[in-house]
């Protein structure tokens, strides 16, 4: 359990997604190392159109693995500013580099303090360890 990477500079959700605050104010969103490992080989990612607005917790896409699929939920409300075309082309990037090249979307958050609503690394580690 402790082997999974949980970078301290990111924020997280209990749905095993991560967010990174970029200099331009956008949040880059992906799924965690724990999530990619639990899913196994990820074969396909279905991502939203750019420009779509999402409410907090709204489903915005799906990642499919060999055995199952998993819905993606917006960690915060906002507008989809960009999606990762490379992941749509080759979803195994998520397995190989969940916090890097395997990012999914960039979101323009609706509110300034959205970031503060997310779990920090310690909070997410607690979620992982609770087996939720």
């Amino acid at each position: 359990m402790t082997d999974f990477k949980v970078p301290d500079n990111l924020r997280y959700t209990k749905d095993h997604e991560w967010a990174r605050r970029e200099e331009d104010g956008l949040l880059t969103i992906g799924i965690t190392d724990f999530a990619q490992d639990a899913l196994g080989d990820i074969t396909y990612a279905e991502l939203p159109e750019t420009g779509r607005t999402l409410d907090t917790g709204e489903g915005f896409g799906v990642v499919e693995s060999v055995k199952t699929f998993s819905d993606l939920y917006a960690p915060v409300a906002g507008e989809v500013a960009e999606t990762n075309a490379a992941v749509e082309e080759d979803a195994s990037l998520i397995n190989r580099d969940a916090y890097g090249e395997g990012w999914l979307i960039r979101l323009r958050p609706q509110t300034e303090d959205a970031w503060e609503t997310l779990l920090d690394a310690a909070g997410y580690r607690a979620v992982m360890e609770s087996g939720d």
Binding site: G40, D41, T43, V66, K67, S92, N95
Partner: peptide, 8 residues
């Protein structure tokens, strides 16, 4: 055993 490493 569901998988040992990568299923693919």
């Amino acid at each position: 055993p569901l998988r040992y490493g990568s299923t693919v």
